[in-house]
Simulated scan of single mutants.
Amino acid sequence: MYKIVINLCFLTTLLNVTLLKMTKFSLLFVFASFCLFTGGTSSLPTNDKPGPLWIIQMGNRDNLPNSPRGMMISHNSVDSTNPYQLMNDKMIDYVNSQTRKNSLLPLEELNGNYYYFVKYFKTNFFKAMQFCKENGMDLLSLETGEEYMAIVSYLKKHYPKAEHIWTSGTDAGEEGSFVWLSTGRSVNFTSWGAGLPDNSAKIEHCLEIARTGVENYYWNDRACNSEYNFICELRE
């Protein structure tokens, strides 16, 4: 007989743990189809297949770089037709969404993607990369024109005075061949200003979103040690 075992104490902990602020510790919880605890459990008979192995991993962002709060939940089951699997997947989605909503940084959701707009201080390209990584994110890469227009629309509405915004684009590896350093992918669309990139003084190797006038946004190459605002993004 296949058993789905539900530990009520575990579920209560699961729904509340997203409210915790993670510190410098790392815990590993394993919730298998046979419950580790006796209290608050029930079983439903189905068939003989082993159930999914549940894993909740909590720790600092160095250990769990893909989580803004140092928490990750997953299981090893891959049977998408199993109704219990679907229930499991919905619970995972819920916990992960709560993790994002309760990030230590105020994330903005644009078209299903999550961003942190660094408005209140400026730094160079490399320290911007470091800041994003330390907070479980990546410096902005622009994969589509739609994503770029969503970013520009947000800047126009909420941060109209921003003139220089770092992205993760760079041609430091090969002059003229820009890649998104956060993903390693080549830049597959462009929105350069007229005559750009120009590698002025032979030192401009990092890609910014620049603004001139009221609403004229465009890409520009700049010296990587220039200090600008920047945008971090949370990758799924």
Rank of each mutant, 00 (worst) to 15 (best):
I6N: 04
N7F: 00
F10G: 06
T12V: 12
T13P: 01
V17P: 00
T18M: 04
S26H: 15
L28R: 15
V30R: 14
T38H: 15
G39I: 11
T41E: 04
T41N: 01
S43F: 03
L44F: 12
P45H: 09
D48P: 04
K49E: 06
K49L: 05
P50D: 05
G51N: 00
G51I: 02
W54A: 10
N60G: 08
L64Y: 01
N66C: 01
N66K: 06
S67I: 06
G70N: 01
M72V: 08
S74L: 15
H75I: 04
H75F: 14
V78W: 13
T81H: 14
M87F: 13
D89T: 13
M91E: 09
I92E: 07
S97R: 14
T99R: 11
L104W: 01
L105A: 00
L107H: 01
E109K: 02
N111H: 00
G112T: 01
Y114G: 02
Y116P: 03
F117V: 10
V118P: 03
K119R: 09
F121L: 03
F121H: 09
K122C: 06
F125Y: 15
M129S: 15
M129G: 05
M129T: 14
D138T: 04
L139M: 09
L139A: 02
Y148I: 02
S153Y: 10
L155F: 07
K156S: 07
K156E: 08
K161W: 14
E163N: 12
E163H: 13
H164S: 15
W166S: 03
A172H: 12
S177C: 09
S177A: 10
W180A: 01
V187G: 03
F189Q: 11
F189P: 11
W192H: 09
D198T: 02
S200M: 07
I203N: 13
I203M: 07
C206D: 08
E208C: 13
A210V: 04
R211D: 03
T212A: 12
G213C: 12
N216T: 10
Y218N: 08
Y218F: 14
D221A: 08
R235V: 13
R235D: 13
